[in-house]
Design a protein around this nucleic acid. Sequence first.
DNA 1: TTGATGCGCTAAAACGTTTTAGCCTTACCG
DNA 2: CGGTAAGGCTAAAACGTTTTAGCGCATCAA
Lengths: 334, 334
Amino acid sequence: MKSLSIKDIAVKANVSITTVSFIINGKAKEKSISEAVIEKVEKIIAESGYKPNQIARSLRTGNSNIIGLIIEDISNSFFSRIARLIEDKAYKRGYKIIYSSTENSIDKAKELINMFKSRKVDAYIISPIKGIEEDIQMLMNDGNPVILFDRNLPDISTSYVGADHFNASYQSIKNFIDQGKKNIALVTIDINVAQITERLEGYKKALEDSGIKYNEDLVLKIHFNQEESETIAQIQKLLQHKAVDAVLFATNYLAISGLKALKQIDKKIGDDFAVIAYDDHEAFELHTPRISAIQQPLEEIAETIIKMILNQLSSKAKLPAEEVIIPARLVLRD
Amino acid sequence: MKSLSIKDIAVKANVSITTVSFIINGKAKEKSISEAVIEKVEKIIAESGYKPNQIARSLRTGNSNIIGLIIEDISNSFFSRIARLIEDKAYKRGYKIIYSSTENSIDKAKELINMFKSRKVDAYIISPIKGIEEDIQMLMNDGNPVILFDRNLPDISTSYVGADHFNASYQSIKNFIDQGKKNIALVTIDINVAQITERLEGYKKALEDSGIKYNEDLVLKIHFNQEESETIAQIQKLLQHKAVDAVLFATNYLAISGLKALKQIDKKIGDDFAVIAYDDHEAFELHTPRISAIQQPLEEIAETIIKMILNQLSSKAKLPAEEVIIPARLVLRD
DNA sequence: TTGATGCGCTAAAACGTTTTAGCCTTACCG
DNA sequence: CGGTAAGGCTAAAACGTTTTAGCGCATCAA
């Protein structure tokens, strides 16, 4: 069953395609179409259930009302939550989101960018990985609004929204120190991307400011896509040392692996051993004892991203890149 | 900067648009284009980085290579995990996924369907809610492949993939009974959709088969979109009764609320009180004690969905509706 | 009376593809 | 030598919109 086209409506209403188009797009007044015709056409449209073909519309206008969202992994709760918020907010403003996961693969990320490009998305929201700087630069050169979030790429100048990773990390370590901890470990990941290195820098700076010297043995860098069992083994090796009296996990999935690791060795979280996770997770609140976490302000991040995107979309001129750093919140539990 | 069109390539190569199109679409041989021309054009395409405009292509061919996925909530881990799997598998076969959340709203669901329709997606994968039967029927009447998953709609005949909710529920309750439990509660949700009622039926049947009579007071139906605090309060009220010695939660987020509820009242999970959750979650493995759960075979569900979709897409004729029920797995912990 | 202005509407081009139908050569068969 | 087939290519229509330019008429000011 062929679906209706604007032509069918025009024929039924006995007016031209142009007139129907004007009415559909709310330009009837401006184009001085008579009230009678407007009503007639609107009635026919409502009765027939006609919906404009967005593809044809996109082809003609060059924009799609779609925003492309590229993230690392939709099944990671940080991303799925932010995706949900972004989708929601975009939706309310008449935009749809297409999202897709890079799985930390440069090739996949590039492919996704190309795919979105050939689908003519109106704007890009990207949680980037190293190695796609050129592609992103090209998008911007072509005049597309691009906003990076969560992770920033130092080598190009894009708009960026993210949490204050450095300070969040700094505060967490300070908190440990205030509790009298001496041997504070950091479990992080070996991806060389700003937000991860900032967390390391915050760790270092907090130690330094408190006169504790940085000990490389206390920093474990997990290879970013290794098997979880191996991650657990490595974490166990690190934490087995009696001396380690606190640990900051640089991502929530590392923390989850860490908690699994702790279950198997004889090290209890409590007065003698403290834990903070970066990025909150439902499991942390439920854990016994409850796990402290750094909460990124998802709602605020999503809102900021959408606002920036819409700004860029509605301004003809290319806006200068803008960086928004939003404070994160350390939630202490138990 | 305007992006290249097929025309630019044609001009550069000094051939017709048609020829370029044939080459792009791998029809060169079939259309007997000479080796020399093929090479020349391919070289130019590669050098220029030309990518066909998918919108124009869609407009002309009528298909988009996009599959629409409609779910309840992408931030729910069950859906985000399955979305990731589906995306992945579809991607490998050259299809993209657009997904969007209904948030259990009939209006939003209808809107989404319309949106996807006007975007001419090639197929629909839907975790439906009651109230959109007509819209789904219309999609099918128009000849679109439609596959429901997770939830089935009894009133229409669509292809469906889902876990064996009845049996999973039945086995769980049987397991409780085998442990000697007498007062087994069920915390479920008041959505009237097949997979939820099946879980209730499995519960009832297992009791009946064991000669335990069904006690309505032990079944708590939570209103589907109420505040979590209220849910927690209701669960607490139910479980506070000493007599209740086991509980099955019908969804993972109910179980999470349930675990929160238990933290606040003096009821410990252990020999005297057992818990099983429907749909696994990272938090359950980490919980102390670890929480048993019914695992839906996500991988298998995703794979089945994609296979069915591709089948329907590649067959000209409309295939008969097909229902695939996949056994779920009860994972007992601690 | 004339020229300008506004009203109500429309024809046709354009967006970038795919695909049908067909043109011109050359080769081959009988 | 005439007719057919195949090889190598292309012109143009079509997909469903939006938008520019402009038509015919009535009104109005000078």
